[in-house]
Design a binder for these strands. Structure first.
Length: 372
DNA sequence: GGTTTATTTCCTGCTT
DNA sequence: GAAGCAGGAAATAAAC
């Protein structure tokens, strides 16, 4: 299901990060949570610039390359600086104007460039964060055949001008969530309250022109390690290569091979999620249910939780997936370990007193578990 | 119908 | 010894 709140935060992270270091958007996205950004942005406007500048001293590229080094505090300071910069440029980032900035950025950084006049035939309707994130982060990957124009349709919640209040959409079904927008208006239209007392929903459509030539990007960013500039598929291929060295794993076709065959790579894009109800979503929703006693938080702020009744959790997961008695905790935990590899969960910190068994932590690809 | 994603199933070996 | 953890391998359903 479309998660509007996280779409917005990912969008924001991606845009901000793309402006500074295009290949680091994923690091920001993993490191910073929705509330950290939006709450801090509300507080920053009156803060002295010199004070902020002082506290951001010591940040370097390594901080941004290593999500474990990049503390939330530093991230907040950095984003505050960006916000000030954008405000100074008279850019209203709650509107579609932000996309003209991005479009210009991807047009070889030429600030005076204009949005493309019209979309080409490959119009796509993009509804997931990664649909936008990946073209923004890896403009060359999707432009191997000479560049293409993606049409991105999106909506952004505009806070009431007088109060600046913002409703945070968290998980589907939560307050502020408007998952059903089957009757989306066309370009740049708005709907919702206009009396300044309730948020407005702004619908927009923008074209993102992609550029060919990954080599050029590498040449343009020699300060970044090579690994940071690999395309998602190249990363896979590197993994495959490394695996092959070890145990002759079945090799996956490269993009170049598909293009040579004159066809598009089939299947989902890397990172593109389906509408399937995922294990991490099941666990998240279970944790949000105050009536249940089979799973509990160990540290909600950190996303660390503990399974109290393993067999019952497995049984409910089995019911959810309609295979009932066949599901066991052993199978569920195997799925959970695979999900951890994919980033939906991650290792529980050692030596911090958390139980060694039945204890897990949400990862960077999961969201909506933290109450705002 | 080929491919990818997100499991599911089964398994061995290890740790608590 | 039971329960849980780690991860390989193969199978599967759904999505694309």
């Amino acid at each position: 299901m479309f998660d509007r709140g996280n779409f917005r935060s990912d969008l924001f992270n991606g845009i901000m990060a793309s402006t500074v270091f295009p290949s680091l958007a994923d690091v920001f996205t993993e490191a910073i949570l929705t509330e950290d950004i939006f709450q801090s942005l509300d507080q920053v406007s009156s803060r002295a610039m010199s004070e902020t500048m002082e506290s951001v001293k010591g940040l370097n590229e390594n901080d941004f390359l290593n999500q474990h080094v990049l503390s939330e505090e530093k991230a907040e300071v950095f984003f505050n600086l960006l916000k000030m910069d954008w405000e100074a440029s008279d850019i209203d980032f709650w509107t579609g104007n932000i996309f003209s900035k991005i479009s210009c950025f991807h047009d070889n950084g030429n600030e005076s460039a204009q949005l493309p006049e019209s979309a080409d035939s490959s119009i796509q309707e993009l509804t997931q964060p990664d649909d936008l994130m990946i073209p923004l982060m890896w403009p060359n990957v999707y432009g191997d055949q000479g560049g293409e124009t993606l049409v991105v349709e999106y909506e952004i919640e505009v806070p009431p001008e007088e109060t600046g209040e913002m409703i945070y959409a968290n998980s589907p079904g939560s307050a502020g969530d408007i998952s059903d927008f089957s009757s989306e208006p066309e370009n740049d239209s708005s709907c919702g309250g206009s009396d300044g007392s309730s948020p407005m929903i702004s619908y927009s459509k923008v074209e993102v022109k992609t550029e060919p030539g990954l080599d050029e990007q590498r040449q343009a960013a020699p300060y970044l390690p090579v690994q940071a500039i690999l395309s998602p598929y190249e990363e896979e291929e590197l993994e495959d290569y490394n695996d092959t060295v070890i145990r002759h794993k079945k090799r996956r076709k490269s993009d170049a091979e598909y293009i040579a065959d004159g066809r598009k790579r089939p299947g989902r894009k890397k990172g593109q999620t389906s509408s399937v109800y995922h294990l991490w979503e099941f666990i998240r929703d279970l944790l949000h249910d105050p009536k249940q006693r089979i799973i509990k938080w160990e540290n909600e702020q950190e996303g660390i939780f503990r399974v109290v009744k393993s067999s019952e959790v497995a049984k409910q997961w089995g019911n959810m997936k309609k295979n009932r008695e066949k599901m066991t905790y052993e199978k569920l935990s195997r799925s959970l370990r695979y999900s951890r590899k994919e980033g939906y969960f991650e290792d529980v910190p050692k030596d911090e007193g958390y139980p060694k068994k039945l204890c897990f932590k949400f990862g960077p690809k999961s969201h909506g578990w933290k109450r705002l």
